[in-house]
Design a protein around this nucleic acid. Structure first.
Lengths: 331, 331
DNA sequence: CTGAAAGCGCTTACAG
DNA sequence: CTGAAAGCGCTTACAG
């Protein structure tokens, strides 16, 4: 059978209390006693049961992570950032998705109440916000990785959306573009409004109006359809700022279909810098969101909170960066 | 404070034993007693502590998953398949990576010994195989999602690599191609040898020799370099079968660079069907691996094993499928 | 510096 | 059908 703290105690000729103390490196233990115990521990290959420790201490050294979907193009980077940070702190990561609606949410809340983890990282909690608010008020530490909404109730990390939009505008204007189309995401998202506002503000500074703004839904199909429709209506533009890369890919497709050259006739800038971006034809210039860093930051914030620290009351904003590729080269 | 089984027992006027029995839907409980207890449970919002249950029962209703990296293009699909299956069975999923070498491995083994989970799913365990073998012999149920090696010791799920290679050959031959180049992955991987063997066997059946085989390393850069080098050496081919999509993308790039037209001059078939494949120029014909289904299958196998069932002794092989796109159209 | 005992919140023989 | 008690493997006052 597996070796327990009692086995170690017996083999070392001390009490379980003493073994526990050397395990938790309490100062009070005599050096030679500690050495002896450590020796036995190593010899027997003893590792404390995480379940028992958790029960006794009332915490599990585990954080939960709730994501809407694991197959979104940028999710892997966020996850990797979180996992790296959490593992480095010797915490476990319990992963949940809520892609199957009510059932998943119910299952998830259950896990929460079961105290399976000490704190929670949530990525874009669109349908789960009410539940999260309740849990948070109930004492569960929560950190959001979230660009979509503004949720002052939670500590959160987000990308510099306003500045990202502004940098897209600067890039296009520097290239001499004067008639931009902005293809936004759903305008109910905070990130969308911020990206648009940043783009507009910069254009306004330079005396350029943004006449053409279309609301999309972040999908490739929609990006393609939208550009087709506008061209069919006779609208003209020499640049497109799409609010995410998938939509930008749809834009590239539509432009190719109708024979407009990118970037000669129309320059295209996306947002996100998902892995596909470097492989489109032409490759996609885009405003990069530092997804991995966002995951790392969220995890660090949560761990700090669990260690007793305070959480920032305003969102932590990470910088974006224009990645220049073929679809909108430098001037 | 949080409500415990003792609180429920007291409020319902029964013993903890009885509460536990209705919790675990044992038959012996009187119907009206059970109803009363259930009522109290709902009213108090009681959920058993997973840690305490785990300790008492000796199992955690949690499975672990160990992956080499979370940012590989197809990992999200595997993960999603595993998570969906595991969640549906009311198990938790503890996620680990071993991308930081020895340190991560050590940390991970520690978690295992701590009995943080009941069983383990491992994706492509290149450096961790010795450790896994030890754990498995020690009684930890393990299932592999693994195309790279052949590990008879473990239950595993894999894609039909031989047949996948054969189908790539059939597709290219049907299109009239007669001089294929095969750009393999590292030949120490079982999947690579199988894909190559399947391709060769089908060509041989049709009387076509495979004169040109190059060993690559699965990266885009290598795929590009390899094709460049072969062309510079004056080698000719009218088709490329790359053993993964990333390498195939490199191939497309190299061919474009030197002005060869795809698919007119050279047809290209990849392997995997990662998300990028539909967005390359031309879009990539590829042999699809059913990543999500592989994740689901592995999870189901592990859960069955944890429920006391036996595991299949030979690998479970899931079918591949040729996804026809622009780089190698149907004849 | 060290240990006996209680406690964390459950489950499970065992007895009735 | 129901409950008192022991036990799962730890930690932590408390006493010495």
């Amino acid at each position: 059978m597996r070796v327990t703290i009692a086995d170690v105690a017996q083999a070392a000729g001390v009490s379980k209390t003493t073994v526990s103390r050397v395990l938790n490196t309490r100062a009070e233990v005599d050096a030679s006693t500690a050495a002896k115990v450590r020796d036995v521990i190593n010899r027997m290959g003893y590792v404390p049961s995480s379940g028992a420790v958790g029960l006794a201490r009332g915490s599990s050294r585990t954080v939960g992570m709730l994501v809407p979907s694991l197959t979104w193009p940028w999710m892997g980077e966020v996850l990797q950032g979180v996992v790296d940070t959490v593992e480095a702190a010797d915490f476990g990561l319990l992963l949940f998705t809520c892609n199957r609606g009510t059932e998943s949410v119910a299952r998830f809340t259950h896990q929460v109440s079961a105290r399976a983890f000490d704190g929670l990282i949530v990525v874009e909690p669109e349908n789960t916000l009410d539940m999260l608010t309740a849990l948070h008020r109930d004492g569960l530490p929560v950190v959001l990785v979230d660009d979509r909404g503004h949720h002052p109730e939670f500590p959160s990390v987000t990308a510099a959306n306003f500045e990202g939009g502004a940098s897209a505008a600067r890039h296009l204007l520097a290239d001499g573009r004067r008639e931009p189309l902005v293809l936004t995401g759903p305008q109910r998202f905070g990130c969308v409004r911020d990206r648009l506002a940043g783009f507009r503000a910069t254009c306004a500074e330079r005396g350029i109006g943004v006449g053409l703004v279309a609301e999309g839904d972040f999908t490739e199909a929609d990006g393609r359809a939208c550009v087709r429709r506008l061209l069919a209506e006779g609208r003209e533009f020499d640049a497109v700022f799409a609010h995410n890369d998938l939509a930008a890919i749809g834009v590239l497709g539509a432009l190719r279909d109708v024979g407009r050259r990118v970037p000669d006739d129309v320059a295209v800038v996306g947002f996100d810098d998902i892995p596909v971006a470097r492989h489109t034809e032409p490759s996609l210039t885009t405003v990069r969101q530092p997804m991995r860093e966002m995951g790392e930051t969220a995890a660090r914030m949560l761990l700090a909170r669990l260690a007793g620290g305070a959480s920032p009351t305003s969102p932590v904003v990470l910088p974006t960066e224009v990645i220049v590729r073929g679809s909108a080269p430098a001037h």
